[in-house]
Design a binder for these strands. Structure first.
Length: 611
DNA sequence: GCAAGGTC
């Protein structure tokens, strides 16, 4: 008997379907001489400190550097404290039973570093010795699964990938556990002051933006506005220059040749420039872009959006949500016309869906090379019923985005008019000629929302028009806004882009800080630690958060570069470099950050007293 | 009591 093990039940079901196996058992499916079982993500994790003899939280134990890491069953919180998750225990027993019977194991966990780790931890924890092969596919269509099974790889091909994954895991444990205990113990506050490779740079971003925003000194400046009348259609033009003092601006306003000053036609049209612009549709959603949209449209937190999506996924209404890709492959694209057909009767999008059934579909989101473990989020086409309003809202964002992504370009005309009236004034406006994808939601164009004169009247160069009003405007420069969940998610994704060191930047190009599956929980961790709070939509640091930021801000652990550095080394390990030299460096760094944090806590104590 | 990673 051959056993196939997937990362999650949905994938096991898909594969079983391709094989025509359909006998459902507790924890697996069987048929045609195969069994198809699954994990639920990481069933095992590196054992906590007490399993190596580090009891309690104590400076004497630090730094904790286990000789050899152990594995432990994933824990769940109960009234009696942390206990082995019973559903995990049960599934592990089922997997063990199947592995014992197996002649061969086929590894079908997700094609990536963590997928490899999920399987290997199970395999080693169960002390299994059976041979295994690797299925390596990036989409779960029937064709891709069949092709993958014709091309199974030897399991040992992925030993170095496992090494890099195991290093990632141990390094996070070493640095996180030790730095957290060191800072918490030395602060003397008896609260948990956690630190980690991902959460601390995230905290640092929120704090540094907050301080920059708070300390921003706005500069006041002045402009002059005039109102011009074209056959009863009014539009506004703003002085081409801005002025430091009100007096300078007033001088410009005094020179305006408006009707009240005795000039019936004092607005001279210097130039009219009208440029058509094509705006391509947005890409399909990955988890992060959808969380950002849901935060902007509905104010949902990243965590809440993920939980809504998980509901929809379990109800088989949307494809796998924790994806980092905004693309689909050609195989999935082939199913899109049928999918669009399912929405021609939709309340809101029916008309646009119908229009798309006869149009040539835009292929901007189709690129198999940019599909990683999972493709972009799509509806499955199953009929949606009895959704809560919030589930419905997120579901509609998925459906709407699909229609947008395959729609035509939006064609706009951007008009700039220069008017001379004493001095030079400018008016600009945007007119949408063909809405294309913008017809789906029919939203206002975000970037132009504040701008007046969305459409400008037709004027011609050389025309003279009456200026019917004028005013001096007082304006001020604005600081960068505080982070909200949408802008923070975006910043986490692109955290690597601002790194100066080219190699580190390159190492982070596909990752950013954290992963799509974990970013929401990172934000929740910072909230739980009382490092940040939500004020309206903004994420604002607390006193505690700012104090911790104060002591770590110049440390490596607070920089995105640390992740870049690790990613570079982990990639080298994947291609065969030594594991031990990297781990030795991590141990050295653990010693140094631990001693720094043991010292740093005293500074925190002073801060705590001052508050 | 603690990391980051995955998922129900």
């Amino acid at each position: 008997m051959k056993v196939i093990i997937a990362e999650k039940p949905s994938v096991a079901r898909e594969i079983a379907k391709v094989f025509g196996a359909n006998t459902k058992r507790e924890g697996y499916i069987e048929g045609k001489g195969y069994t198809f079982t699954w994990a639920f993500g990481h069933l095992l994790q590196l054992a906590p400190p007490q399993e190596y003899g580090y009891y309690g939280w104590s400076v004497q134990n630090l730094p904790m550097l286990p000789q050899k890491f152990k594995l432990a069953i994933r824990k769940v919180k109960t009234k009696e404290g942390m206990v082995d998750d019973p559903s995990v225990k049960k599934q592990l027993d089922i997997i063990k039973g199947l592995f014992d019977e197996a002649t061969e194991i086929i590894v079908a966990t997700d094609a990536g570093r963590e997928g490899e780790l999920i399987f290997r931890y199970i395999y080693y924890f169960l002390k299994c010795k059976k041979p295994f092969k690797r299925l390596w596919i990036s989409s779960q269509t029937d064709a891709a699964i069949k092709e993958g099974f014709r091309n199974l790889k030897p399991g040992t091909d992925y030993d170095t990938l496992f090494n890099s994954a195991h290093c990632r895991s141990q390094s996070d444990w070493l640095v996180g556990m030790n730095a957290t205990q060191a800072l918490s113990l030395s602060s003397g506050t008896r609260s948990v002051l956690s630190l980690g490779r991902v959460q601390t740079p995230t905290l640092a971003m929120i704090c540094s933006r907050y301080l920059e925003n708070k300390n921003f000194v706005p500069q006041i400046y002045y402009q002059v506005a005039i109102q011009v009348d074209k056959d009863g259609q009014l539009f506004r033009a703003i002085s081409a220059n801005s002025y430091k003092t009100k007096e300078e601006a007033q001088t410009i306003a005094d020179r305006v040749e408006d009707v009240a000053a005795g000039f019936p036609q004092g607005g001279h049209i210097l130039s009219v420039e009208a440029k058509p612009r094509k705006e391509p549709p947005p890409l399909l959603h990955d988890l992060s872009s959808l969380q950002q949209e849901a935060n902007k449209r509905k104010g949902f937190t990243a965590d809440y959006t993920l939980s809504l999506l998980q509901n929809l996924y379990e109800g088989k209404l949307v494809t796998y949500p924790r994806t980092g890709s905004r693309y689909i492959g050609d195989d999935v694209f082939a199913t899109v016309p049928g999918l669009i057909d399912k929405f021609t009767g939709h309340d809101v999008f029916g008309k646009q869906a119908t229009a798309l059934t006869t149009a040539k579909l835009n292929k901007r989101s189709v690129n198999a090379k940019k599909v990683t473990d999972h493709h972009a989020i799509l509806p499955t086409g199953e009929a949606a019923r009895q959704l809560t309003p919030d589930q419905q809202a997120v579901y509609d964002m998925v459906v709407g985005r699909m229609l947008e992504a395959f729609h035509q370009d939006c064609i706009k005309e951007i008009t700039k008019i220069a008017v001379q009236s004493g001095s030079k004034f400018m008016a600009s406006g945007t007119v949408i000629n063909t809405p294309g994808w913008r017809a789906v939601f029919n939203d206002k164009d975000e970037e132009k929302k504040d701008e007046e004169n969305a459409s400008l009247p037709k004027v011609t160069q050389g025309e003279n028009l009456p200026v019917t009003n004028k005013a001096v405007l007082e304006k001020q420069t604005k600081p960068k806004p505080l982070y909200n969940e949408a802008s923070l998610l975006k910043a986490l994704e692109t955290a690597g882009k601002e790194i100066e060191d080219e190699e580190l930047r390159y190492a982070m190009k596909d990752s950013g800080l954290g992963t799509p599956a974990t970013r929401a929980s990172i934000i929740e961790t910072l909230v739980k630690r009382d490092y940040i709070t939500r004020e309206k939509k903004n994420l604002v640091p607390t006193e505690t958060g700012l104090s911790v930021y104060g002591v770590v801000k110049d440390q490596q652990i607070a920089q995105a570069e640390l992740t870049g550095n690790w990613e570079k080394r982990l990639e080298e390990i994947r291609s065969g470099a030594s594991v031990n030299s990297f781990l030795a460096e991590i141990q050295q760094y653990t010693r140094s950050i631990t001693s720094e944090m043991l010292k740093a806590g005293t500074a925190l104590r002073v801060v705590a007293k001052q508050i």
